[in-house]
Design a protein around this nucleic acid. Sequence first.
DNA 1: TATGAATGAGGATTCATTCAT
DNA 2: CATGAATGAATCCTCATTCAT
Lengths: 229, 229, 229, 229
Amino acid sequence: MTRRERQATGRTPSCDACATAKTSAVFQKRQLNIIKKASKLFIKKGYAQTSMRDIAKATGIDVGNLYYFIKSKEEILYLIFDMFHKPEEEIFERCEISKIEDPLEQLRTMVMELINLGGNFGLEILLLYRESRVLPRENLKSIMARESHVISQIEGILKKGIREKVFKIKDTSFTANMIMYELSLYAMRRWNMKRYTKEEFTDLLWKHIGKVVGAGEMKKARFVKRSAK
Amino acid sequence: MTRRERQATGRTPSCDACATAKTSAVFQKRQLNIIKKASKLFIKKGYAQTSMRDIAKATGIDVGNLYYFIKSKEEILYLIFDMFHKPEEEIFERCEISKIEDPLEQLRTMVMELINLGGNFGLEILLLYRESRVLPRENLKSIMARESHVISQIEGILKKGIREKVFKIKDTSFTANMIMYELSLYAMRRWNMKRYTKEEFTDLLWKHIGKVVGAGEMKKARFVKRSAK
Amino acid sequence: MTRRERQATGRTPSCDACATAKTSAVFQKRQLNIIKKASKLFIKKGYAQTSMRDIAKATGIDVGNLYYFIKSKEEILYLIFDMFHKPEEEIFERCEISKIEDPLEQLRTMVMELINLGGNFGLEILLLYRESRVLPRENLKSIMARESHVISQIEGILKKGIREKVFKIKDTSFTANMIMYELSLYAMRRWNMKRYTKEEFTDLLWKHIGKVVGAGEMKKARFVKRSAK
Amino acid sequence: MTRRERQATGRTPSCDACATAKTSAVFQKRQLNIIKKASKLFIKKGYAQTSMRDIAKATGIDVGNLYYFIKSKEEILYLIFDMFHKPEEEIFERCEISKIEDPLEQLRTMVMELINLGGNFGLEILLLYRESRVLPRENLKSIMARESHVISQIEGILKKGIREKVFKIKDTSFTANMIMYELSLYAMRRWNMKRYTKEEFTDLLWKHIGKVVGAGEMKKARFVKRSAK
DNA sequence: TATGAATGAGGATTCATTCAT
DNA sequence: CATGAATGAATCCTCATTCAT
């Protein structure tokens, strides 16, 4: 509460070095390293339970020097979100999903890309669900905006699928959100999911989503219709 | 109310100092109050961001006296989990679910009960996902065991449904976990879910689960088979 | 600069204890002790050069416990100002200065009271000149408002003296400020002033102010006038 | 500009590492720039609140490189004092004050010169009052010695004035100190003095000092004496 | 039971200074 | 001369917990 009040500084340059426009490759590499290591620690121990000393130890960067690369502990979290959620936005364009004809294939591409994003199999998303409240409202908004964008892209695919009679969905917004949420099942319930390999899980998940959008059902329906002629 | 009367209530006393005296109704009422108030604070602000002083203020119990009722901050979290997840275990028996014939109806009853458990529309589950790693391994295990028990009950229903050709599910364990996980959609994605009333959400969720277990599909299949005769 | 941003919290209750309305005599005594000891340290070493540990050592109060009595280091400074400048305001009323006929006597009473205020012979005023910039604007304003009030009371005396042809002053505001400023001579130039006893200094100062307001001059003028008749 | 050329400029090199190389004109220019910029920052924000990074930013000299020109932050403060108080010493000689006949005119010249010294209207003196205790005793002494020298020169003027029956002063040391102190009124009470232009203030100040040394009084007295004849 | 005061380790962050290039 | 990275001690402050009453 008190500590909260102190923050909320708005997102100006992230650190001393950034302020002086030092965005050299080596600097960025260092910063990236910090973000990645911190990300792992936050996932494992929790944000509040991870001290800057822990991060210093994990990165091998002196605790004081850490602040040469990042502005605050809070900013690390923000950068983690930034780093792992920015690519989300671009999936749609990067994978040229809009050029794919079949909505089911569109959705599959999207889902697979989302799953594989952080390279950490969705563990980073866990942070968003778990620790987002440490961020000041303003930063949170920008993260959420990005997320909403992805959701709306999923929704777009769903709607297209409905128009083309491939999907059968009652509330596209609800379903888009649910699909996004389901992607984190592995991360959030690791203790029960560990039994599956990544491939097994991905396979099950995609089958699951297939049901959710009513894909199988529609195919059969079409088949039935045709055979009924 | 003499010291004699305070006894035999079931819950093991939390503070070892005065094991005999702390099981009276009034003691438990106080403790329950602490747990509830703390629960709300933890949900709103996060465990680490909530101080014992916050809890003292919220309960009106002096910060020193708080320790008469609970052993530590950590224990409060444990007790919250205990409080809100113990009933989960008993749903199956309490609602006499095993006596219900139709697997779909069994599942519906289970799901509805789980959703309504804390009275807080699933917000307490959020704590489990978010803050569980604060607890020492041992405590965590006992919580997880309980959770697993519920999962296996759901799995039981699914299996029954499959046997009776009402459900069509590839991996019952996966699906049971997924269903359990989906129940928390509202809590975890409040920022997008707020647009739905509780009734709307519950309705959508149940429809969703219906698809997931392949209920609709099977009905149609049976219909098709029959009409094919 | 950064540390600055963090502060500026507005002056709400000063500490945990105050918040819960614990303003017991013993509590206040403790707080007063802190303020006094800190005041001495600030005067001797400077605000920035005095650490909370120093204050803890000086007061015998544990560094953590210190924060039970005060909200922040900054607040200590504010309270020092508050403590030593509040009485300033009340001199006029307390000493019933307005009831004194002779403006010169009015002024003398005022000056003597101001000098003796902190009991520390003006050393506290030194802090105002030296360290006031650590306070956030808002707090500074309230201190300054008080100071201005005193200045305007002095100015009132000066004006009265002018009307009664006892003083001869060109710009009352300037002179009032100057008099106020001169009161701190001892504190600000201790290294040269130490040679004087308090009495000697006070005597010299009053003689000095007498000249400044043109008191002697007017008397002689009146004498001259009369003798010229 | 070879290494040879950099030499023989008077100021002892501040950084012992490269004593021979650091006395070139360009070096001194840079150092002077640092001192001036730092002076401004110290005045505005306070010594402790100004970081070496602030100074680096203000001067455009890299924070590491700064230490090529100055030995430490503390030294900057010392050099500021040195820079602005050395000229004080020389006023007496430079303005050939001893050649002025009339003590009042002598004093006026001295006062005006002192006011205008830093070009900053006395703001640098404020630093002396405010931050001098940062310096180690030894440095402080040398600064104070210089100051005392000025005071004694003022005192000399006062004594001469007394001998010549132009001034009427009880304690010349006290008054010399007071006059010196009064010169900083503007700087120390800026918040109230801002209303005056530099000219207005200077005028008021000189009138004030006139009274303090009893100049007007003496003139009248002489006039009275004469007219009494 | 209740209270308020005490404790002290630990948190994030800053900063003067140094060093290798 | 310049640079940017490194260092680590020191700073203010918080907080769970305990203790005496």
